[in-house]
Computed example of a mutant assay.
Amino acid sequence: MGRVTQRRPVLRIRGGASVTRPDTLAAEEPLEIRLNGRSLAITMRTPGDDFALAAGFLVSEGVLGSADELRNIVYCAGATADGSNTYNVVDVRTAPGLALPDFTLERNVYTTSSCGLCGKASLDAVRTTARWTIDADDGSTPPVRLTPELLAALPDRLRAAQRVFDRTGGLHAAALFTPRGELLDVREDVGRHNAVDKLVGHALQSGALPLRDTVLLVSGRASFELAQKAVMAGIPVLAAVSAPSSLAVELAAETGLTLVGFLRGDSMNVYAGEHRITLRAAASSG
């Protein structure tokens, strides 16, 4: 079944009866991300889309912003003592002459599948300067406007596209939609921040950044790190089926990001960027 999933025996108990049978689990393995040969971060992820994950991670770190700044990404042969390739170490090589951020700030380079920013030296260290404003300054991209009805339909469309979740029940998902509700891309991973990095990394590799004319939907909560990743990719709307954190709301308010939480059925909370939500006149007066 590949490295995305694994089969393991499980004792299943239902109504007092028990049976041992194989179960499908979402795979979780470490991925070390190197930048020009230098170890930068280790994240726990679901194998697959590793190059996109690494590229997306470097977008959120302010290293990459366009495909021409990326020379190549390779798996590191000889990553173990015996010289074998585990396919768990990637090296991102940037274009010659590209200026890199200062990574000398104290930071914990190990990131778990639930928190991509643990160990940052301070809040200021993660407020990376974005390359783009969320709305285009030159008018080349029409402002994004969404109705609550369109937003309400997106979680079901995301759920229908989650192939690995159907087999394991153990993965987060992130999806990009157009403002008309059309699904552009969806990625799954044990880490919600990894799923977003895979989306952004694919966009970088295809020359699609900034993603100004899109909506990002995540299957869990909206943390500060996910809001930051949206801003760094130029995404104007972040919607989540669960709650946002206080720092996510603060960042959204500062940058103009529309942040929607508790998107369930026809109900939702808009925490910032209300100007992109088009309400019926009767509904908006209440």
Rank of each mutant, 00 (worst) to 15 (best):
V218H: 06
E225S: 13
N194E: 09
E188Q: 04
L211P: 12
S223A: 14
L199W: 08
K198E: 07
D189N: 13
A195I: 02
G201L: 02
E188I: 00
A203K: 04
R187M: 09
Q228K: 15
L209H: 10
Q205I: 13
D197W: 11
R212F: 01
R192K: 14
R187E: 12
R221Y: 10
E188M: 00
V218A: 07
V190L: 02
G201Y: 00
G201D: 06
A230R: 04
Q228V: 08
A208E: 15
R187W: 04
P210L: 10
L199Q: 08
L204A: 12
Q205P: 07
A222P: 06
G207A: 08
L209F: 06
L199S: 07
Q205K: 14
V186D: 02
L216R: 01
A195K: 04
V231D: 09
V215W: 00
L226Q: 12
P210S: 09
V218S: 05
Q228W: 14
F224M: 12
L216E: 04
V186N: 08
G220F: 09
S206G: 14
T214K: 12
V231T: 08
L216M: 03
L209S: 12
L199Y: 08
Q228E: 14
A208N: 13
V218I: 12
Q228F: 11
V231H: 08
V215S: 08
D213A: 15
L211R: 11
L211F: 05
S206K: 14
N194R: 03
D189M: 07
H202Q: 15
R221G: 15
V190E: 00
T214G: 08
A222Q: 01
L211H: 06
A195N: 02
T214F: 00
L216C: 05
G207R: 03
E225D: 15
D213I: 06
A195P: 00
E225I: 13
D213G: 08
S219E: 14
L204V: 10
V200K: 02
A203R: 05
N194I: 05
L204Y: 04
G220W: 06
Q228D: 13
H193S: 03
L226N: 06
L199E: 03
V218R: 01
G201V: 03
G191H: 02
G191N: 03
F224N: 12
P210E: 10
L199D: 04
L209E: 11
P210T: 10
H202L: 14
L216Q: 01
E188L: 01
T214N: 10
N194Q: 11
